[in-house]
Write a protein that binds this DNA or RNA. Sequence first.
DNA 1: GTAGTCATGTAAGAGGTTACATGATTAG
DNA 2: CTAATCATGTAACCTCTTACATGACTAC
Lengths: 206, 206
Amino acid sequence: MSLKHALLAILTADSMSGYDLIKYFDGSVTFVWSAPHSQIYPELRRLDSEGLVEVEEVARGKKGTKRIYSINEEGIEEFRRWVNELLPLQPERDPYRLKAAFMEWAEPENARRQLQEHKRHYEASLLRWQQLVDDIGARRVPLLQRRLERRDPREHDRIVAFKEFAFRGEVARAKAEIAWAEEGLRLLDELEAQPPKRRSARRARA
Amino acid sequence: MSLKHALLAILTADSMSGYDLIKYFDGSVTFVWSAPHSQIYPELRRLDSEGLVEVEEVARGKKGTKRIYSINEEGIEEFRRWVNELLPLQPERDPYRLKAAFMEWAEPENARRQLQEHKRHYEASLLRWQQLVDDIGARRVPLLQRRLERRDPREHDRIVAFKEFAFRGEVARAKAEIAWAEEGLRLLDELEAQPPKRRSARRARA
DNA sequence: GTAGTCATGTAAGAGGTTACATGATTAG
DNA sequence: CTAATCATGTAACCTCTTACATGACTAC
């Protein structure tokens, strides 16, 4: 049920159309929660039917309609309920770790490719997240600016601090994943340097 | 499609019933991939209908049937295909980070409770994972023992090394999450020590 | 006019959660 | 006889992915 609350979270910053919301989603929220537009538009309709948002319909051409969504009191209450509620920690489900645990079945070059891709992916993420943390600190993020405009200046530091904290968690995660991938690449090097038996997996159950 | 391959992965160690498989799942694979029995039994049937496993049916009482699953050549090929294939990195979706980013909407005690729970959860995970890495290194894990029995001793170190590596990734992740939760708890302490405005979220849009 | 961006949807299918449901064997 | 463990399912529901689909506005 987090998509619903991710949408409400964005709408606590300001009223906007589904399209705008998707842009902000891709701009920063994506880093902690991603969703395609095919999931967002129906979910916004659902928020409306649940009475958590108000909708202003704006005609566009003969048939088109743009919908501007605003969170209402019930929406705010629902969002507040969600942030205050204890969310039980969920079981892990990580396909990369799963694959890594069975890399003896892969050709070394394919195992290496997967780990290189892992490293590359998190290095790119790290840059983006670090940049985002900096931008949040400098209040350079558009959605954050819209949010702060509607809040008492005395609250600003607190609001910013939590956002920095959340994304610093992603920065730390990226660093840990990079180190892990590097460890795996070193392991592959070692195993190839002193091959006890090459292509061993190929004949495993022959 | 990882459940399918997690099941095949376990069956590369040895033939077993769905029930046994679930036990092993809960024993170590759970740490990287979890699934309830309601998902596992149908998936095993599917593996059978796809011709990736052989099934031996054993009568139990008047109506009961126990099914012993064995991976076959096609299953091994499919599993090998999966480990060799490059799995594109997927977008993050982390409800805890999402909540953390909006903690200004929570009562401090509830934010603190969530982070304490986060810390407690990963501390427990850390112990179990560290224990598992040790047990893997000492070949003390039952499923691993069954696996090694059917493999050339010269391959053993390599097989063990990948499993240790995979779970060391989880150990690192747990440590990072504990550190993150501690950072969050410190932040809450600081904000409460010098409250710019208490219960601010409550009146945010009033 | 045409490419880019604005703007919004539907639908099939895969994957996962939660609850319900049943019965056998074994150890005390 | 009774509790624990063995053993296997079904079904409703929710979430997410992927692909298909349409049309308007704006700047060149």
